[in-house]
Design a protein around this nucleic acid. Structure first.
Length: 331
DNA sequence: AATCGCATCAACCGCATCAAT
DNA sequence: CATTGATGCGGTTGATGCGAT
């Protein structure tokens, strides 16, 4: 007996989401939080399958999503991370918390792939002259590891709120007036406002396109709804959850790296460091389902390591790697 | 103005993984 | 241990927009 489909295919709507559907989905998630996607279509009356609801939320409606052009910095991050991790878009996205895996994947396939191929063609001659392939790949591997450490440090840095407290601790008590949605995207600590922006922009476009632009009831009522419910603490908690999950994902990379790297001599030795875990933020990670001993000990080392190291070199080191170095392993 | 080709990106599909039973 | 169901992930598709001819 085969596994039944995740949803009843009959009567399931496909294709682009309408603003009305978005509103229904966002309202429902505001009330119940993300998760238990199977119940979403049933409880909301949306004629969408649960997967579609989840995807719409994670890729478009979720708070804190940054859309639009990728910055040079983001672009370089993606290139380097792709060289490090391959097409593991979710893992790459965990290093760019404001971008979705789908966004990064699309950007890679439409922009970066071509860009790198172009560059690679330009460097083909140099490659043919390559020397000892083993030592070369080993060097690249070492550099990958080094870069991964730096990336994980950055993620942990943010997770422990050393430099950006607001990133992980949303201002739950703040109220966001409707006008907040029109503020500049650069304003921090406004994860919910960011979501409001998404919806507001969406509605704005919809109202422009809609022939019944006179009937703005849905838009207005939605806007009001966002104002009243947007300041709720549940949303703040939800944002925390999102950030924590993402940061933890990045941390997982390092933790897995540690075990992977156990037999390999590295410039940084986790075992040499020993300190007590005092940070409440770090303790948050223990709420995850993994056994606490598995994460606590490495976290202690990492925290000590971070405090000791202080300087934020990861960006520099990572970005100072030439694009050629990074992309040479791709082709 | 028409249409053709290409680029972009939201959404879908199928498989993998994990947890519950 | 096997089965089932929910969720996550990566590859792919298709609708749409836009520039070139």
């Amino acid at each position: 007996m085969g596994r039944p489909p995740c949803c009843d295919k009959i009567g399931i709507k496909k294709g682009p989401w309408t603003p009305e559907e978005d509103i229904i989905l966002v309202s429902y998630i505001q009330e119940h939080g993300p998760g238990n996607w199977r119940s979403v279509p049933t409880n909301t009356g949306l004629m969408r399958c649960s997967k579609s609801c989840r995807l719409r939320w994670t890729n478009y409606l979720r708070p804190g999503i940054k859309r639009g052009n990728f910055t040079d910095h983001e672009e370089k991050m993606i290139i380097h991370l792709q060289a490090l991790l391959g097409n593991r878009w979710a893992a790459i996205a965990s290093y760019l918390p404001q971008r979705t895996d789908n966004d990064i994947k699309n950007y890679w396939n439409t922009h970066l792939k071509k860009k790198l191929k172009k560059m690679q063609n330009g460097n083909e001659d140099d490659h043919d002259k390559g020397g000892n392939s083993f030592s070369q790949s080993k060097g690249q591997w070492e550099r990958r590891l080094q870069t991964d450490i730096h990336m994980a440090k950055q993620a942990l840095c943010e997770a422990l709120s050393l430099d950006k407290p607001s990133h992980i601790l949303p201002e739950i008590t703040n109220n966001y007036p409707a006008t907040k949605a029109t503020t500049t995207p650069n304003q921090t600590s406004s994860l919910y406002a960011s979501s409001t922006e998404n919806i507001a922009r969406l509605l704005e476009n919809w109202m422009k396109k809609s022939p019944n632009s006179g009937e703005t009831n849905s838009g207005n009522s939605f806007s009001n709804n966002m104002v009243t419910t947007g300041s709720s603490s549940s949303e703040g908690a939800q944002s925390t959850l999102t950030c924590t999950q993402q940061d933890h994902h990045a941390l997982d990379s390092l933790l897995s790296f540690k075990s992977f790297n156990s037999g390999y001599s590295q410039s940084v030795s986790f075992e040499e460091n020993n300190t007590n875990l005092t940070s409440a933020d770090a303790g948050n990670f223990q709420d995850e389902s993994k056994p606490s001993m598995d994460t606590q000990a490495p976290l202690m080392f990492l925290e000590k390591w971070l405090f000791d190291d202080g300087a934020n070199q990861c960006h520099e080191d990572l970005l100072n790697m030439s694009l050629e170095e990074s992309t040479s392993v791709l082709f």
